[in-house]
Write a protein that binds this DNA or RNA. Structure first.
Length: 259
DNA sequence: ATGGCGGTGGAGCACCGA
């Protein structure tokens, strides 16, 4: 079963890329972030025509997440822990795997959090605390699950071409890195790193200053696996070439295969 | 390099992203 995650930076601007990627990578499940539209504006028909069920948790202008799946889904919207949080950053599906089992998959768009020292950074840390608490709840079920998405965290210096440039940034603050490590310490497995320890694996390149041309990238999109899912991990990869397409998102897809 | 690009809303340019 192939699961991928991709921050598309507006699904309406990226529809051609999205359909191309579905054909090319043929994921069973694709988690999307930053769809940047309301549910009713999502290009549902085109994606259903490509053979996918569509579930969205949209918002006007900003944020918004979705899950596309070949198989039907049972859906929950919103990250538990704060009834007043109105930002559309979390959607979770339980998907029948067709072999008598089920896989839970979440599409997550964690806050950026810049600038550090503001309410935005406090919101980022609070969101990550809620994510950790939710992960703890899910782990108690002892089931297969994947928490996939744009975490807006650079986990280690190996995950940036120029880590020294990010020391003052919310993506690489000690508190942000500690939150990622806390998820790891709960027993969640960073799927890409589990199979690919090498340097130079990035998922985001800024549009500015020729970051892509200089390969000045960072790795901030992650698939975190429960132990039961990690036991079945057979492949993991970044689809780097997608950043070279015409009018690309600033993020690329990351995908895994579970046996 | 507290902003070089790109998306959104809405018809200017401010706000947001990372």
């Amino acid at each position: 079963m192939r699961i991928a995650t991709w921050n598309v930076n507006s699904v309406r601007q990226r529809l051609d890329h999205l359909l191309r990627y579905l054909r090319e990578a043929a994921p069973d499940v694709l988690c999307l972030q930053e769809i940047k539209c309301l549910d009713e504006a999502f290009p549902r028909a085109e994606i259903e025509a490509a053979g996918y069920n569509v579930e969205t948790h949209g918002q006007k202008t900003f944020n918004g997440v979705a899950i596309l799946s070949r198989r039907p889904m049972q859906i929950a919207r919103g990250l538990p822990g704060d009834e007043r949080d109105e930002q559309a950053r979390y959607i979770e599906a339980v998907i029948d795997d067709g072999a008598g089992g089920a896989l839970r998959v979440a599409s997550i768009y964690a806050p950026n959090g810049n600038p550090v020292g503001t309410e935005k950074f406090a919101y980022k840390l609070a969101f990550l605390e809620r994510l950790i608490a939710h992960a703890r709840e899910l782990l108690a079920l002892e089931e297969r699950f994947v928490l996939a998405g744009d975490y807006n965290i650079i986990p280690t210096p190996l995950d940036a071409k120029r880590p020294q440039d990010w020391t003052g940034d919310a993506l690489f603050q000690p508190e942000s890195v500690a939150a990622f490590r806390a998820l790891s310490n709960l027993g969640l497995v960073d799927a890409l790193r589990a199979l690919r320890p090498e340097a130079g694996l990035y998922t985001f390149w800024d549009y500015q200053a020729g970051a892509w041309q200089k390969d000045n990238g960072i790795r901030i999109d992650h698939l975190m696996l429960s132990p039961e899912a990690a036991d079945r991990l057979s492949d993991a990869a970044v689809d780097r070439h997608v950043r070279g397409w015409d009018k690309p998102s600033d993020h690329i897809p990351v995908r895994i295969d579970l046996a």
